[in-house]
């Protein structure tokens, strides 16, 4: 009789553990997928930038400071993307975003450039890519929060340690990212994201 009870208890515990493990795996995979979505969008943006720089150069060659800042921050973002630290990627990408904003602010001064269809299309694509990065970032952060909470709360926390479910880092952004860009012609210095 008592043997039956023991077997039942063991079975129940095993089932609960299995369900917990599976939910951790599910959440981790969702988070990884969310990260790869961000990655795709970041790469797409990197690919757009050389075109943009080339088209601006044709009309506003003497804005070389701004153009160089964009090129440099793109290179920095690409090398940060080779690593795996979300914080480093976020820092480099935020710098790239702000240097792009300066570039578009500068472009406001060149009506001929702004009248170019190709330039407008590029501007729309870059705005879209900012949007997509932002939305992908939010989805990633939501997934990370879900996953981290699961790994830290009982009973799944008991499984998370032994089976190597490490918490993921959030993808932070500069607080001012959603604000309308201030037209500023002097600065192209990257703002570093506030680490948290």
């Amino acid at each position: 009789m008592s043997a039956v009870i023991v077997v039942i208890v063991v079975l129940v515990v095993a089932l609960v553990a299995m369900a917990g493990y599976n939910s951790l795996v599910r959440k981790r995979n969702r988070t990884k997928e969310a990260w790869s979505q961000i990655d795709v969008e970041l790469k797409r943006r990197h690919d757009l930038i050389p075109n943009l720089v080339a088209s601006v150069k044709g009309y506003a060659a003497h804005e070389s400071g701004t153009l160089e800042a964009v090129t440099a921050s793109r290179a920095a973002a690409i090398s940060a993307g080779a690593g795996t630290s979300p914080a480093a990627v976020a820092g480099a990408e935020n710098a790239l975003s702000s240097s792009l904003r300066s570039l578009f602010a500068v472009a406001e001064n060149y009506p001929v450039l702004r009248a170019q269809e190709g330039f407008l299309a590029l501007q729309e694509q870059l705005a879209a890519s900012e949007d997509k990065i932002e939305y992908a970032r939010r989805y990633y952060n939501t997934s990370v929060r879900d996953y981290n909470t699961a790994t830290q709360s009982l009973p799944r926390a008991l499984l998370a340690g032994p089976f190597g479910f490490r918490p993921f880092e959030f993808f932070e952004t500069a607080a001012a990212d959603r604000d309308t860009p201030a037209v500023d012609f002097t600065t192209s210095a990257p703002t570093s994201p506030t680490a948290s």
């Binding site: 879209a128 949007d131 932002e134 939010r138």
Partner: peptide, 9 residues
């Protein structure tokens, strides 16, 4: 692009 972005979100 907006629909694409929102679906990502």
């Amino acid at each position: 692009h907006l629909v694409e972005a929102l679906a990502l979100g």
